[in-house]
Amino acid sequence: MGWMFNSTLYPTFFLLVGIPGLENELKWISPSFCIFYLLALLGNITLLVVFSASSGLHKPMFILLSILAFNDILLSTSIAPKMLCIFWFNARLISFDACLFQMFFIHSFTSIESGLLLAMAFDRYIAIYQPLRYGSTMTNNLIGKLVIMLLVRAAGVVGPFLIMIKRFPAFKTNIIEHSYCEHMAVVKLAAADIRINSAYGLFAAFSILGVDLLFILISYGMIFRAVFSLPSKDSRLRALNTCTPHICVFLSLYILAFFSFLSHRYGKRIPPYIHIILSDLYLLVPPMLNPLVYGMKTKQIREQFWKVLCRYQGTSLP
Rank of each mutant, 00 (worst) to 15 (best):
K59D: 09
F62D: 13
I86W: 00
I79S: 02
L74N: 10
H58K: 15
L64K: 06
I63G: 09
I86N: 00
M83R: 03
L64D: 11
I86H: 00
D72S: 14
D72Y: 01
P60A: 15
I79C: 02
F87V: 01
D72R: 01
L57M: 11
C85F: 05
T77I: 02
S54D: 04
M83E: 05
S66W: 07
S78Y: 05
I86E: 00
I73Q: 06
K82T: 07
S78V: 03
L75S: 11
I73L: 15
S78L: 03
L65D: 13
I79M: 09
T77C: 04
L74A: 14
L57W: 06
F87N: 03
N71F: 06
L64H: 10
F70N: 06
I79K: 00
I73E: 12
K82D: 05
L74H: 08
S78W: 06
S55R: 13
S54F: 06
G56V: 05
S78K: 01
F70R: 07
A80E: 01
H58Q: 14
L64F: 12
F87L: 04
C85R: 08
I79Y: 01
L57S: 08
F62T: 11
F62N: 13
K82Y: 06
A80C: 06
A80S: 12
L57N: 05
A69M: 10
I86R: 01
L75W: 08
A69K: 06
C85W: 05
P60G: 15
I67K: 05
L65R: 11
D72N: 13
I86M: 00
H58T: 06
D72L: 02
S76K: 00
L68G: 10
T77G: 02
M61H: 13
A80L: 01
F87D: 02
S66Y: 08
L84Y: 02
I67S: 03
K82G: 06
N71I: 13
A80P: 02
F70H: 05
L57R: 08
T77H: 08
L57K: 05
I67E: 04
F62Y: 15
G56T: 10
P81Y: 01
M83Q: 09
N71L: 04
P81T: 00
F70V: 08
I63E: 12
P81F: 01
L84G: 02
S54A: 10
